[in-house]
Structure formats: structure tokens, C-alpha cells
């Protein structure tokens, strides 16, 4: 069963703790922002979403990157495997989100402009 890969690994303990600290700090920032909700961030809208929500989503993807690259060790895999995993997910998910959110917004507009009665 031994693949011969198990022998010459140096310890990555230091890097693991660094990533843990990064993830914790990012989570802490999210929580603090979530509790205080700074006015100018919630008021400012960018691409029909508040700046605060954009910050949350970007920080989430940043965390996801560290978990996948460091903890799941994607950085050590071959380029082919990495792309098979990341590109598949990224393209399919982006498309799904785009189509569903557009549709959701459309239905919201229809309800709002009262072409369809839904609140009896």
C-alpha cells in the first residue's frame, strides 16, 4: 500500500498555526462588522448590494481559499487536479447563482408592481 510518498515530509506545523491565526482574525473581523454594522458600509451600495455584504462575501471566499489551499492541501496537488476541482465548481456555481438571483429579483419586481396579487 505504501506509495513511497509518506517518507520525506517535513513538518508544516508552523504554517498550520499561521493559517489558523489568519482564519481566526478574518472571522473576528466579520463578527465585529456584523455586530456594529457601520452606517456608511450598509448605506453605500455597489452593484445593487451593500458594501458591507460585499466585504462579507469577499472575506468568506478568502477564508475558503485558505481552507482549500492549506488545509485541504490543494497547493500541493498537480495543476490538472487543482483545476479540475476549482474551475468545475467556480464556473458551475457562478452560473447557478447568476441565474437564480436574477430570477428571484424578477419575481420580486413582479410582486411589487402588483401584476400578481399574493398578499390576500
Amino acid at each position: 500500500m505504501a506509495h513511497g510518498t509518506a517518507h520525506h515530509h517535513e513538518s508544516n506545523t508552523k504554517k498550520i498555526w499561521t493559517v489558523f491565526v489568519i482564519l481566526s482574525i478574518v472571522t473576528l473581523i466579520e463578527v465585529v462588522l456584523g455586530i456594529f454594522k457601520p452606517e456608511f458600509l450598509t448605506r453605500t451600495s455597489f452593484l445593487s448590494m451593500s458594501l458591507l455584504n460585499w466585504i462579507f462575501i469577499i472575506l468568506t471566499i478568502y477564508k475558503a481559499y485558505y481552507i482549500a489551499w492549506s488545509f485541504m492541501h490543494l497547493e500541493g496537488e498537480t495543476k490538472g487536479l487543482r483545476r479540475a476541482i476549482v474551475w468545475t465548481s467556480v464556473f458551475l456555481i457562478s452560473y447557478l447563482i447568476f441565474i437564480l438571483l436574477t430570477e428571484g429579483d424578477y419575481i420580486y419586481e413582479v410582486f411589487k408592481s402588483n401584476h400578481v396579487a399574493w398578499d390576500f
Binding site: I93, E103, G104, I107
Partner: peptide, 12 residues
């Protein structure tokens, strides 16, 4: 994404 759809639908 389905959750997002419903949220956009009940945005307000």
C-alpha cells in the same frame, strides 16, 4: 443558491 433566490424574491 435556492436560499438566495427566495431571499431576492422576498427582498423587502
Amino acid at each position: 443558491a435556492a436560499y438566495g433566490f427566495s431571499r431576492f424574491k422576498f427582498m423587502d
